[in-house]
């Protein structure tokens, strides 16, 4: 076998290990689904009437159709907390030092964590989409739109997972690792997830318009609800790729240094 196929085999072994962990210890994965679903219920059934009136005609009458794409993105950010915690917890155990003394691809440990994290988060996202459909979310998307949605969400999750892995590696304790991705979970709120950005105060609006989650949310909403995407699509993809590269290199350098 070549070095590359060994690297693939080792990464697959590490992926199996991480998925086994996740199935056996779902305590970190459950909130990734539960929190966005609770948020969805809150925004649709508790705040929905007032917010829906404020959002206006762009929302096709139902606030759930406006907020659901935002809530779906929220699920991707909660997944990053689970990844940061599991990476950090792993690093504090002796097992990673054992992996370092093995003649295996050095990237394998991280690849396994990130692939495992991406699969877990995407499954959570599917469940959140299901919950949104149950609460009356009625996207009018074609099969191609759904495919593009899946692609976009995968890009977002890959980017957030590499960032979270880097945070988990750099955190000194598991507690710090669970706090580090916290700002990420607020980004959808400070974008167009809940309300349109032009209803925000000037300073916040300026931030909202230039942060990655606004073009991502707008693209997702466009794909699912047929609203105008414009150049948001390209900007969203560029953000995802850029953040993936940043997260990847920060994670690799932290792993090699530790």
């Amino acid at each position: 076998m070549s070095t590359f196929s060994y690297a693939v085999a080792d990464s697959a072994t590490m992926l199996r290990r991480n998925l086994k962990h996740a199935v056996r210890y779902p305590s970190m994965t459950i909130p990734v689904v539960a929190i966005p679903v609770v948020m969805l219920l809150l925004f649709v059934y508790v705040f929905g009437n007032a917010l829906g009136a404020g959002v206006g005609p762009g929302a096709h009458g139902h606030y759930v159709d406006y907020v659901a794409p935002g809530i779906i993105l929220m699920a991707t950010t909660y997944g990053s907390i689970s990844v940061a915690v599991s990476v950090c917890a792993d690093m504090t155990e002796g097992i990673v030092n054992r992996f370092r003394t093995l003649s295996i691809s050095r990237a394998a440990v991280l690849n396994g964590h990130v692939l495992g994290g991406v699969i877990q988060t995407l499954l959570s996202v599917v469940l959140v989409v299901g919950a949104a459909l149950l609460t009356g979310f009625r996207p009018h998307a074609t099969a191609l739109d759904w495919l593009a949605t899946a692609g976009l969400l995968t890009l977002v999750v890959v980017a957030l997972t590499w960032l979270a892995a880097a945070m988990g590696l750099r955190a000194k304790t598991v507690e710090a690792a669970s706090n580090a991705p916290f700002p990420l979970t607020f980004l959808p709120f400070l974008g167009s997830a809940i309300v349109p950005t032009d209803s925000m105060p000037t300073a916040v609006r300026w931030f909202a318009e230039y942060q990655p989650f606004t073009p991502i949310t707008d693209t997702l909403r466009g794909l699912l609800m047929g609203t105008e995407i414009g150049n948001s699509g390209i900007i969203a993809v560029a953000w995802c790729l850029g953040l993936t590269v940043l997260g990847y290199f920060r994670a690799r350098s932290a792993y090699d240094k530790a």
Binding site: R17, R24, G94, I95
Partner: peptide, 15 residues
């Protein structure tokens, strides 16, 4: 060529 057993048990506690 080497095997290492460190001071603190390097086992995967979840397996």
């Amino acid at each position: 060529q080497i095997g290492v057993t460190g001071q603190f048990a390097a086992v995967d506690g979840k397996l």
